[in-house]
Nucleic acid binder design. Sequence first.
DNA 1: TGACAAAACGGAGACTATCTCCTTAATCTC
DNA 2: GAGATTAAGGAGATAGTCTCCGTTTTGTCA
Lengths: 196, 196
Amino acid sequence: MTEPPAVARPRRTRADKQRNRAHILEVAEQFFAEQGVSASLDAIAKRAGIGPGTLYRHFPTREALLAALLEARDEELVARRDAIVREENDSARALEQWLEALDIWVSAFDGLPDPLRDALTEGTSPLAMTCQGFVTTTEQFLAAAQRDGRAQPWVRGRELFLSVLATAWVRGAALADESSARSMRAVLRSGWALPG
Amino acid sequence: MTEPPAVARPRRTRADKQRNRAHILEVAEQFFAEQGVSASLDAIAKRAGIGPGTLYRHFPTREALLAALLEARDEELVARRDAIVREENDSARALEQWLEALDIWVSAFDGLPDPLRDALTEGTSPLAMTCQGFVTTTEQFLAAAQRDGRAQPWVRGRELFLSVLATAWVRGAALADESSARSMRAVLRSGWALPG
DNA sequence: TGACAAAACGGAGACTATCTCCTTAATCTC
DNA sequence: GAGATTAAGGAGATAGTCTCCGTTTTGTCA
């Protein structure tokens, strides 16, 4: 029988690891902001002064890196949600403000709607948690508006969230002016049809 | 002074060129249908039994290849437009049917909404002509519905076309069931809001 | 039909991006 | 400081895009 090995006390995380992680995030934020979410990961590593292997050890996929970057903004969005709940009594206006906040959030980087859409279906992406949370919040605002007869009863939160992604996707490249963006939002809100 | 050169009578297009072009289109149609618009072009060339150079000589960009593939379907869509004009008297229903036809058209291949969106902004893509034509048609149907007071007066054809692209983009990966798709279309048509 | 010129083909390979080992270096613990 | 361990670095495997240029095919006309 071998000696029962003493349970190894886990070491503290190495300092260079934390330093590298933070630096990668800084550089990635800049690259994604400038070039969109498809920016070259190797280029980010190079600019951060590390090898590709190091980047991939910290963030195994592009989605993992994105998820880490969005975490800080997630907190802002949660704060915004709380502020809306606190300050807005009209349930329809509250929903509208929440959708607007979501819209700003998904516009953080060019091309962000694509990985978010994928995360919403695949469920395995590190972005999925975040997404699902915001879908739930959307459902809560929506349910309140529906209770007050201020939102179509057949709409669901998931589709509303996807609509926000979709309008952001359109804006990504196809809308030159702000008036088009407003128009898209209006279509989302009140549709194109008038009762005959 | 040099002799004015006899104007060379242009040769007939070589038979192998036509053969190759047709074959590339066949194979590409299959690949795009199976794997979406991002399928490897070199793989298409290989399957078609030609070198990559030949493919790129025929279709310098992925968009050019897509445009050629969509040409046949364009004709179907134009025919559908004429049929709607001929058979549907109600302008709102006509617009709705046209949007549905567009929706089917953009669903020909997985991922098609992306290059179409890009084409609509850049204007240089071989897909731009086609897109622009369908925007114009959308505007015509929309104008009729607006004259009849059946469509919001502030909506424009371009945004409506983009909305169709956007809902197709969402469906691309994120909508499991047909009920979600219907719901998205309903939001597009009548919005989520009810008057307070 | 054969010879010439023009047109088109083929595929090697340059370039870029992703991602993975495995060797080397930095850091923590005692 | 010595030793154990964790992380870094970066060459290179793989895959996709796209180009260039020597070779082949085809059309034309004597």
